[in-house]
Amino acid sequence: MANVERYEAPESLPELTQILAEGPATMFAGGTDVVPQMRVGARPVRPTLININRLADLRGISESNGVVRIGGLTSVADILDCAFLKQVASVVVQAADCFASGQVRNAATLGGNICNASPAGDMIIPLLVLDAEVELASWRNACVARRRMPLCDFFTGPGKTCIEDAEVLAAVQFPVPKPHTVGRFRKFGTRPALDIAVVSVGLAGVKENGCFKDARVAFGAVAPTPIRGRNTEAALVHVELDGDRISDIAQVAEQEVSPISDVRASAWYRTHLIRELMERMLHEVHQTRD
């Protein structure tokens, strides 16, 4: 990190976005991705380094007008401890519970997880199934400008997103899930702690009388970005679940993904796991009363 020429630690969004407008900079929040990546040279070192941790406005979880808003700097630990989220959108909390270890959760932020854009990013999957949007802020015409886009359109490749150099992820928001929403997140790692997902599966939908009225499914680590499982969703809605149906739906999920082989698993194993996790998740959901 010898090439860093300037260090900034802004305390407000206008301050931060103005610095970003001045030219290429590297932001860090928890630093749990960016620091290891810079150390091994996996990320080019830009001349300006910005510590964004002091922007208190970007931290916190709130709800208004039926919309849940989670600030970009909210830590994974804060999400895990949030009683409100546990109640209305437990799938996000389930993901936080599978995330890394206590120490890393204290530092790691939601914005960092999303902007790092790993296909295996754990917090992304539950937000995809909650139909989340990201809010991106930048400095335009002498004030902070904000734009929103659906999270499912945000990712363009491993480590790549639609965010522009001068933008910061200010928040993520999603509609308060409707009554009777069921949400599940399952991560498969080869060990119970401190593991990167070999695959992960998320599911959310309104379930009434043993039947999903709507459903969103997402998969992690099976494609260059986290993806929605549109075919699986279609197979799942308005279907009365039973053993055979569940196995059919799991098969749709299996056919929908086309993972790669790497040091963590082969494509064959990942595909098998998607089916296995989907099947288990649906059995479990099926057995739980609406």
Binding site: T190, R191, P192, A193, L194, D195, I196, V263, R264
Partner: peptide
């Protein structure tokens, strides 16, 4: 059941604690 230094064509593919899996406390 866990540790494996993956060597392909003479090269180590997982020279880090991220991908070389030591047994962790809960196991």
């Amino acid at each position: 059941i866990a540790e494996h230094l993956i060597v392909k064509d003479g090269r180590m593919k997982n020279p880090s604690f991220r991908d070389y899996k030591l047994v962790t406390a809960p196991e």
